[in-house]
């Protein structure tokens, strides 16, 4: 039996709704008044800073650090909205920004995946679809083993992997991912053959490594600092071109005569067709920011990153070079056979 609700109740409900609206308005007006004083000139509107990956990840941390340093150092009084539009290996956020052609009020984080994704995964938008602004930092990849591993040096590892193919297992975050490209380079340079095991996330790789289920893995230093300090993981080598200041005893792969250089870049790009003056404005501002003490210690040092600033033109050239190198590597690894 359908009861018709009494007029009274409907009225009461509506009244409650109205009251709530009123209360919400009063509580909110207090917060909003402070942020409404924007300068006359650019940026006179809030900036949408798109992170194409999930909250809590490296890109998210990067974007939030930028906005916080800019604000704390008084370099910019622009309002930033950091927005995570994750999914589809970054392609959802990238498609969103690519669709905002000519918009001067949108920025997006860039990682090396913006270069490799279109090649390996055949993503629709590559770096050429965005306005390059600046490269800010380079992340290193460490090759690590569990503390009780039989491999004492990187040579031990490579020798074992040369002796018999696929006995040494390498945990990574997915074929075509950046760690698999590093492994590809290493295998080519040394003639070794490792058994690559894909996991869903860096966290799962760490668990498998700590539990001894895989023999070796690569990781960004900031993800494993805790384990390194506790002595549960042991670094064998770093894939960059120089030793890390925080880990002076860990050799680079190049020192050990393996012709491998793999660094992940972090930068900022804008939508296609962003005004060049606007791109330059951000490039200059970000350059100033990277020179601050706060950025150097609280971001770069803490996360073991290298300062790697490049302005718009150099940044674009660098991405073009990286694209060429990755295409060659992927070709040799046979990652793009189908699809």
């Amino acid at each position: 039996m359908m009861t018709t609700p009494s007029k009274f109740r409907i009225w009461a409900m509506s009244l409650v709704a109205l009251l709530t609206v009123g209360m919400a308005f009063t509580s909110w007006s207090g917060q909003a008044s402070g942020a409404s004083q924007l300068p006359e000139n650019y940026p006179d509107q809030p900036i949408e800073f798109v992170v194409q990956y999930a909250p809590g990840g490296g890109s998210d941390n990067f974007a939030r650090m930028i906005t916080s340093v800019l604000a704390q150092e008084g370099l910019s009084d622009a309002t930033f909205n950091v927005v995570n539009r994750e999914g589809g290996s970054g392609s959802i956020g990238q498609a969103y920004v690519a669709g905002k052609a000519g918009d001067n009020y949108t920025l997006m984080t860039m990682t090396s995946a913006l270069v490799t994704g279109p090649i390996v995964l055949d993503l629709e938008h590559n770096y050429e679809d965005f306005t390059p602004i600046a490269r800010l930092a380079a992340d290193q990849l460490l090759i690590v083993v569990p503390a009780d591993s039989e491999f004492q040096t990187i040579e031990d590892l490579i020798e074992a992997a040369q002796a018999e193919p696929d006995v040494v297992s390498w945990g990574g975050t997915g074929l075509g991912g950046e760690d698999s490209l590093l492994l590809g380079q290493l295998e080519q340079a040394s003639g070794a053959n490792l058994n690559y095991i894909s996991f869903e996330s860096g966290g799962e790789v760490q668990v498998a490594l700590l539990g001894g289920h895989v023999d070796v893995a690569s990781s960004n230093p900031n993800e494993i600092i805790g384990q390194l300090e506790a002595g549960e993981l042991r670094p064998l080598a770093v894939a960059g071109d120089a030793r890390l200041t925080a880990l002076p005893d860990v050799p680079t792969l190049q020192e050990k005569e393996f012709d491998v250089l793999y660094q992940q870049a972090r930068g900022v790009v804008g939508p296609p067709g962003m005004d060049p003056e606007v791109a330059q404005y951000w490039a200059d501002l970000l350059k100033e920011m990277t020179e601050t003490e706060r950025w150097q210690t609280e971001y770069l040092e803490k996360n073991m990153l290298l300062d790697a600033y490049l302005g718009p033109e150099e940044f674009a050239e660098w991405m073009a070079e990286e694209t060429e190198a990755t295409e060659a590597l992927v070709e040799e690894m046979g990652l793009n056979e189908t699809s």
């Binding site: 509506s14 709704a17 109205l18 609206v21």
Partner: peptide, 9 residues
């Protein structure tokens, strides 16, 4: 009232 209040809320 509901049609106006809901989007605002």
């Amino acid at each position: 009232i509901l049609a106006l209040a809901t989007p605002i809320l």
